[in-house]
Design a protein around this nucleic acid. Sequence first.
DNA 1: ATTCCGCTATTGTACGTACAAACGGAGATA
DNA 2: TATCTCCGTTTGTACGTACAATAGCGGAAT
Lengths: 252, 252
Amino acid sequence: MSLTPLDRGSPMPLWAQLEVELRKRLEAGEFDLGFPTDLQLTTSYEVSRHTAREAVRQLSASGLLTRERGRGTVVNRSEFEQSLGALYSLFESVEAAGVEQASEVLRLEVVTDPAAAANLGVSVSAKLVLLERLRLAGGAPLAVDRAWLPQKLAKPLLKVDWSRTALYAELADMGAPVPNQGWERLTPVMPGAVDRELLELDENEAAFFLERQGNRDGTPVEWRTTVIRGDRYRFVTDWTTGEQSQLRPTAV
Amino acid sequence: MSLTPLDRGSPMPLWAQLEVELRKRLEAGEFDLGFPTDLQLTTSYEVSRHTAREAVRQLSASGLLTRERGRGTVVNRSEFEQSLGALYSLFESVEAAGVEQASEVLRLEVVTDPAAAANLGVSVSAKLVLLERLRLAGGAPLAVDRAWLPQKLAKPLLKVDWSRTALYAELADMGAPVPNQGWERLTPVMPGAVDRELLELDENEAAFFLERQGNRDGTPVEWRTTVIRGDRYRFVTDWTTGEQSQLRPTAV
DNA sequence: ATTCCGCTATTGTACGTACAAACGGAGATA
DNA sequence: TATCTCCGTTTGTACGTACAATAGCGGAAT
């Protein structure tokens, strides 16, 4: 075990060095069966408990760790979810609201799509797995979701039953790379005829259009577009309690 | 000066007691001409510097304070803005992006509006000040903004030049109550004919619809609706750097 | 077998000290 | 007058110590 020693001459604070060090080891999954205690950190890195705690404090402030008095420190496996913005996972938002939901798979096949490939940042002729789903909440249509993934990463996904599963959870379960970088963008749109029919929207009813591109350590993992009914799914910010802006479905 | 002493027998940590104490005094505006230094806190509250710093750390984590080495602690006057979600002020977002902007006042008058009154939570026959503005960024129309405020609060606003001023800043300047509670909601819409013309939108182009209701200590201050061009104003979340979801205008 | 007690491990709180780094103003200097 | 240097103030970092509070485990007592 070659612990990278901390550089006491560096202008970077010791605790900050320790933080990046621990963050690395966290992402490498070294602590999946247990995070070191304060005492272990002080001895293995030869810093004071104060310094070790400052590093750990930063990590737990980022949501990567949860500490509990008497119990110890547990690694937050949903590191990724935590670090994302409010728009993270449509599936999870709906689930969190307690609305019964399901997915109807419209397409699941290998395709070539120049537009999606460009957004993924891969060759325009690259083969992609396209997963197209109609999402239902409370029995009524909520969103149309289309995800393109590079074929080599997504091949095992072709056999999965998608009707009740979140994409990222499934990726994680089968060891496929889950995005830890990327961006997403939300715009209003007039849905096309196909989507309008799927979502059972009247003419002249607008919808949200959510685009997302996700990378894993720099390599593209998914490109996704989602058309969401605006009347049933709203972005609500309640700052009475000082809460963060949040995405949540309205009551049906 | 009767400093509320801290209760050392309480199960609540000393630093937490100190935090709420300082937060109270902050909101009362006691520190507008200077926040006490670590040393002053330790002596006046008779705690260690460690404890005082823990309290201050919490406050600055909430965005109420900004500390700087060598300089001291400054009160963040925009406490309100900080505590809000990402959608806070359209004006400020555009300004932050460095886009040249202006407002064209379409209406500024005293009205009665049952719908707005209901949303404000006041009598449906109450007189309200309606401020309707077309917001321009980079010379092109960006949004149509309509704000209703109770007449008694907003009377002096009738004389203000609104072409370049943010509503909240103006409220604060004249001592009128600035909201510290409320909620906002974002949905997609097909703009009506009037708004479509104002925003120079083609038919079938959707837009964001932002509603906001703001209170000051429980009493309603404003009800506001904003129709925003979706093609020029987008909600972008970039989590490459772990940044929060942010609202910012796209480059024109 | 079950309950209860107490021990240990671990994090939280709170105190202390010392020095480093950075800002800003006072005073010296050109 | 303008600029530079020095020094005090203030926050940041880092060390130390001690005890409290809590969770979980094992052993004792019923």
